[in-house]
């Protein structure tokens, strides 16, 4: 079966790859493209560890066929820091130890960034609702939620 040729943009860079119809975007990111920040937890859209954005929309890359990336714009956790400068969410997660094993962290950060872009001042209830698709089996979520709300407050302060 012929491989499919896909042209897309990943973290701002024009990217081309070959894939099988059955490969997911996550397969191609972690395999041929070497972007292993996105994790595979469940592979069925339940855990959110593979969260990326596709044309700005938060999605599970394990449920996106790689072929569907044609002409789309993808962002992954690798594009979150600017060079050595961490995104405020990344910095805060380190400071507040809002992670333990770290498998869910890339997906949580991607989801939290989209939350703060759309709602710079979320309530705790709103933050928990927004992050419902990112499962964490270590932290019990409290540290994650506190880090997200603290970052939001800092970013609002910085934007004044």
């Amino acid at each position: 079966m012929a491989k499919l040729h896909v042209s897309t943009t990943i973290n701002g860079e024009p990217t081309e790859f070959l894939c099988e119809p059955s490969q997911s975007m996550l397969d191609v990111l972690r395999g041929p493209l070497g972007l292993t920040g996105s994790k595979e937890g469940c592979g069925s859209g339940d855990c959110g560890a593979c969260t990326i954005t596709l044309d700005g929309r938060l999605v599970c890359s394990c449920l996106v066929l790689a072929a569907e990336a044609q002409d789309r714009e993808i962002r992954t956790i690798e594009g979150m820091a600017e060079g050595d400068r961490l995104h405020p969410l990344q910095q805060k997660f380190l400071e507040m130890a809002a992670l333990q094993c770290g498998i869910c962290t890339p997906g949580v950060l991607m989801a939290a960034r989209t939350l703060l872009e759309q709602n710079p001042d979320p309530t705790e209830t709103e933050a928990r609702f927004w992050l419902a698709g990112n499962l964490c089996r270590c932290t019990g979520y409290d540290k994650i939620i506190r880090a997200v709300l603290d970052t939001a407050a800092e970013m609002r302060e910085a934007a004044r």
Binding site: C60, W130, G133
Partner: peptide, 9 residues
């Protein structure tokens, strides 16, 4: 239903 990721897709 579902999560933001799934509702988006």
């Amino acid at each position: 239903g579902a999560s933001p990721q799934l509702r988006n897709a």
